[in-house]
């Protein structure tokens, strides 16, 4: 199968941060398939185990740590683990989508703060640490995986939507601020996804699935090739942009 050489990540090292959800293993697999070494930072041990399992055919090349990244000390400790195994970091992928949905008048402030901390504060802390190294070496690619709720409202979605809009604004700001250092910062915006293989006809029994123009939920593998391109050296002129892979949700009413 002819493939453009521009889609290769051979020789690159990627840090993958997962705030939550079950898609990190697929993102890690896409990066590894393109040739990158992957170091995962997962908020939950369960997610890290799933990532390690998905990369188990090359156990020596990939590693990771389970850590709650809510302070400078926490990110420094995770980066110390990383430096124990790798020389430099070329790629940072942040999946800041720990989901939460509750009626706005019933959201406790602790829950609100926790959602913002898991998704935004942690992504900022890691981006700041990794970005500093990228500035020093004059090269880097950062991709934030965000929800399309960065652009739209949803009933019960206020806390989560705010966190996603924050990540989109962070994407644009870091792109503008770090562009001069040959660092590109983009986002992939996803719609309604599932990591499970559910037959399409079964999915369509749900009204919300029929509302998606392509009439099926997205799969994490749907964003794998795009993630690889946005992490590649060839992605040199695109920065500060969200690319939505959402079955057409963002383009219709």
């Amino acid at each position: 199968m002819p493939l453009l050489p521009q889609y290769s990540l051979a020789g690159k090292t990627a840090i993958l941060y997962s705030a939550g959800g079950d898609e990190a293993p697929f993102l890690a697999q896409a990066l590894a398939e393109a040739g990158a070494s992957v170091f995962a930072i997962c908020r939950r041990q369960e997610t890290l185990d799933a990532v390690s399992e998905s990369l188990s055919n090359e156990p020596g090349r990939h590693s990771g740590v389970a850590a709650v990244i809510d302070s400078k000390g926490a990110v420094d400790a995770a980066m110390a683990e990383f430096r124990g195994r790798h020389e430099r970091v070329d790629i940072l992928v942040n999946d800041g989508r720990s989901m939460f949905a509750r009626a706005a008048k019933e959201i406790w402030l602790d829950d609100w703060d926790e959602v913002q901390s898991r998704n935004v504060r942690s992504t900022f802390l890691i981006s700041q640490a990794v970005g500093s190294e990228m500035i020093g070496q004059g090269y880097g690619r950062i991709v934030n995986i965000i929800s399309g709720l960065a652009e739209r409202g949803m009933i019960n979605g206020s806390a989560f939507s705010v966190s996603q809009a924050g990540l989109l604004a962070l994407t644009r700001s870091l792109a503008v601020e770090w562009g001069q250092h040959n660092i590109r910062v983009n986002a992939i915006g996803v719609g309604w996804t599932t990591a499970e293989d559910i037959p399409v006809e079964e999915q369509r029994q749900e009204q919300l699935v029929r509302y998606i123009p392509v009439r099926q939920k997205g799969q994490p593998r749907d964003i794998g090739p795009l993630l690889v391109y946005l992490c590649s050296e060839a992605c040199d002129y695109t920065t500060g942009q969200p690319v939505y892979v959402d079955g057409g949700l963002n383009a219709h009413p």
Binding site: V176, V214, Y229, T238, Y244, V245, D246, G247
Partner: peptide
């Protein structure tokens, strides 16, 4: 990418190559 089946779940969207001009 947009011509390939790797973009099958992406539709109605824009893919921008603008040096970051629109972001800032």
């Amino acid at each position: 990418f947009l011509a390939s089946s790797a973009s099958d779940y992406m539709t109605g969207e824009t893919f921008t190559l603008d040096g970051g001009g629109l972001a800032g």
